[in-house]
Amino acid sequence: MQVIGLTGSIGMGKSTTAAMFRDAGVPVHDADASVHALYRGAAVAPVEAAFPGVTEGGAIDRDRLRARVLGDAAALQTLEAIVHPLVAAARDAFLDEAKASGAPLAVLDIPLLYEVGAERHCDRVAVVTAPEAVQKARVLARPGMTEAMFSAILARQVPDAEKRRRADWIIDTSGGLDAARRVVERIVAEAKRLHP
């Protein structure tokens, strides 16, 4: 089974692109969704122990947690040391299930793929991109997002140009949904040819 890593900086259209892979019949593991589930389950106790007061109603309050770790490298490392192994276990279970189902390929949707070295779990990587002005407009349109928050998020991400340089495939989402979908369909066809 071929494993494709799907990544892209904030605001590039990665979630929409992941849905296109699903629509093409490819199993997709969403690392963000996995974290959301963990923040209502296995990660609650260890995260609350490390950052007292970040839970609400038995789940991690993401806003409270973000306020505690954003811009604090040591706090972020502590959080990642708790969460990353749990996400990795969920990813491995997903890949085992996809392989057992006979799927010819699977996608790992990982926002910080290069940042955490997750490309080592992938045969190839597709990077979702858009021009900087498009990215900024998309991100700043999000409720509660500020220029400072956007800058802090970008500071922890590998630059878009570097991601594109390292990618096997590039999906530019600035040309509309149909254009992006055609690229996804081409990637699926190529990946299946590489691993029939």
Score class of each variant (00 low, 15 high):
78 T>W: 15
66 R>T: 06
124 R>A: 13
61 D>T: 02
8 G>D: 00
101 S>E: 05
111 P>Q: 05
145 M>Y: 09
105 L>W: 06
65 L>K: 03
32 D>Y: 09
70 L>C: 09
16 T>S: 15
118 A>E: 15
82 I>V: 07
70 L>R: 13
84 H>G: 02
102 G>I: 02
108 L>N: 02
158 V>W: 02
43 A>F: 07
122 C>P: 03
143 P>E: 05
183 V>I: 14
183 V>L: 08
91 R>L: 08
74 A>E: 14
47 V>A: 03
127 V>H: 03
185 E>N: 06
111 P>E: 04
87 V>K: 01
63 D>Y: 11
40 R>P: 06
196 P>D: 11
46 P>Q: 05
142 R>T: 02
129 T>L: 03
9 S>R: 13
190 E>D: 15
144 G>N: 07
27 P>A: 06
15 S>W: 10
76 L>A: 15
16 T>Y: 13
138 R>H: 07
124 R>Y: 04
108 L>I: 03
2 Q>A: 14
184 V>L: 09
134 V>K: 10
8 G>Y: 06
20 M>T: 07
82 I>Q: 01
107 V>C: 00
103 A>Q: 06
159 P>T: 07
38 L>C: 01
172 D>C: 06
196 P>E: 14
166 R>G: 08
193 R>V: 10
9 S>L: 10
41 G>P: 11
151 S>P: 11
110 I>S: 00
103 A>L: 10
5 G>R: 04
75 A>G: 14
159 P>V: 09
37 A>H: 04
38 L>M: 04
21 F>H: 09
99 K>N: 12
117 G>N: 11
113 L>Q: 01
175 G>N: 11
90 A>P: 14
175 G>S: 13
5 G>T: 08
136 K>N: 12
147 E>H: 13
189 A>G: 09
31 A>P: 06
127 V>M: 02
100 A>H: 01
59 A>T: 11
122 C>M: 09
86 L>S: 02
165 R>N: 07
98 A>Q: 00
89 A>L: 10
84 H>L: 11
165 R>K: 08
59 A>W: 05
156 R>P: 07
184 V>H: 09
184 V>M: 14
150 F>E: 00
88 A>W: 14
128 V>A: 01
42 A>M: 03
11 G>F: 06
13 G>P: 12
31 A>D: 02
25 G>S: 05
74 A>R: 14
104 P>L: 00
82 I>D: 05
10 I>D: 04
14 K>I: 00
80 E>R: 10
12 M>P: 07
35 V>F: 02
19 A>Q: 12
19 A>C: 11
25 G>V: 13
32 D>N: 10
110 I>K: 01
136 K>S: 12
168 D>Y: 08
167 A>R: 12
83 V>P: 15
41 G>L: 04
39 Y>D: 00
195 H>Q: 14
189 A>R: 15
49 A>F: 06
57 G>C: 05
120 R>G: 12
49 A>Y: 08
188 V>K: 06
35 V>H: 01
17 T>I: 04
163 K>F: 09
48 E>S: 05
16 T>C: 15
121 H>V: 15
22 R>M: 09
95 L>D: 01
111 P>M: 03
180 A>T: 07
77 Q>T: 14
139 V>D: 00
99 K>D: 15
52 P>V: 03
